[in-house]
Simulated scan of single mutants.
Amino acid sequence: MRVRKSWCGVLVVFLFIQLVWMPVQDAAASAGPPGLSAEGAALIDVASGRILYSKNGSKKMRIASLTKTMTAIVAIENGQLKDQVTVPPEAVGVEGSSIYLKKNEKLSLEELLYGLMLRSGNDAAVTVATHVGGSVPGFVYMMNEKAALIGMTHTNFNNPHGLDDSNMHYSTAEDMAKLSAYALRNPTFRQIVSTKVKDISWEGEEYDRRLLNKNKMLHLYNGADGVKTGYTKLAKRCLAASATRDGRQLATITLNASDDWNDSAKMLDWGFQHFSTKQLVSLGQSIQPESFVKVEEGTHLVTTNAFTYPLQADEEDDVQKRVVMSESVITDKMNGQLIGFLQFHLKDQMIGQVPLKVQVDTPTWVHQQMAVAPTFWQQFWNLVAGGLFRA
């Protein structure tokens, strides 16, 4: 009897533990996509730049040919796509992936960028770098300068192609996600990386080069539209992928991932499922300032643009709005002036802000004129009203 009671007690305790831990396990399961093979990974919302998921996201790692994302965007922003570029001797025969450029061959910069991003041509990378930067070291300087501007704080580029030449060439999953998001906002870059097949010139040959994009995600994943594959013996398999659904674009980074295609698909699925874009304020919306700010009658604070942000279902109530003002008294003489910001905070972190301007209720033309010369216009309207009455 005592044994039976003991077992019943153990069973009750066991069931209680199960009931307590079930919600915790469910919550943990929804914390991110499970079972990723990647050593480093990140998922980003392209429009807002919010990192939605990260695994070892700040760990410095080799990035192989994902480097060429930076090479391409620096070239697009600093070069002319129609420029005719001459292939320099140092670009011919560069090891690894190639589009088989010949010494002194001429192609447009745009054609070279397709060779760079679709076929990962290392010879194209050196040619682009020499043309845009004057030399490979000059172009690498431009790459690192752009990385700093984007906010890639744990990144250093040492070449334009990503070959394993030293320990001075590295980045992180989160930094590369920031780079992908930045580059994908450029329409030229977006067009190039979403192209599956492209023909470019081949000087001295009877036919053109046909470039087939190495990025299998363009065929494997619904809505896929970028970005870049990568591999070296030391970096292993790397992938930057992106997809757009219902107007929302997400991008992923996987570093040292044996199952990179599935890793990327899992992260994209998870991101589209668990996050939705919420409009937190609309254009021209009237905003109430702090109570200590004196606002003249007929005068309002309005937003100069809308603000949207990707949020999980349980996060919207956690967003806090704060009005920051440069003035404590608002008058109609400030009409149209920018005098503050509406800031948005999520978990004590500012996620964005919208400028606020002064807007005055627009009076009629007569009221405007009467405000300038009230005595004259009052007499005028008295005469008009009197004449109409007599008539």
Rank of each mutant, 00 (worst) to 15 (best):
3 V>S: 14
15 L>V: 13
28 A>K: 13
29 A>V: 11
31 A>N: 08
32 G>I: 11
40 G>V: 01
58 S>P: 02
63 I>F: 02
68 K>V: 03
84 Q>A: 11
95 E>Q: 13
96 G>N: 05
99 I>Q: 13
103 K>C: 05
104 N>P: 12
107 L>W: 06
111 E>T: 06
114 Y>L: 05
122 N>F: 05
123 D>Q: 10
125 A>R: 11
125 A>N: 03
131 H>V: 12
134 G>P: 13
143 M>Y: 01
151 G>E: 09
159 N>G: 02
164 D>M: 13
166 S>Q: 11
168 M>P: 06
171 S>F: 00
177 A>R: 04
181 A>Q: 10
182 Y>H: 02
191 Q>H: 08
192 I>H: 07
197 V>G: 07
210 R>Q: 15
218 L>V: 01
222 N>Y: 12
223 G>A: 10
229 T>H: 03
237 R>T: 09
238 C>S: 15
239 L>M: 04
243 A>R: 06
260 D>C: 08
260 D>R: 08
260 D>A: 13
262 N>L: 09
269 D>N: 13
283 L>W: 03
285 Q>D: 14
288 Q>K: 13
293 V>P: 00
295 V>F: 00
307 F>P: 01
307 F>A: 04
308 T>H: 04
308 T>V: 09
309 Y>M: 03
316 E>W: 00
318 D>G: 00
319 V>Y: 13
322 R>G: 02
325 M>C: 08
334 M>H: 12
337 Q>I: 04
338 L>Q: 10
339 I>T: 14
345 H>D: 07
357 K>G: 05
359 Q>I: 03
365 W>M: 13
367 H>C: 03
370 M>Q: 12
373 A>S: 13
386 G>N: 14
386 G>H: 12
388 L>A: 12
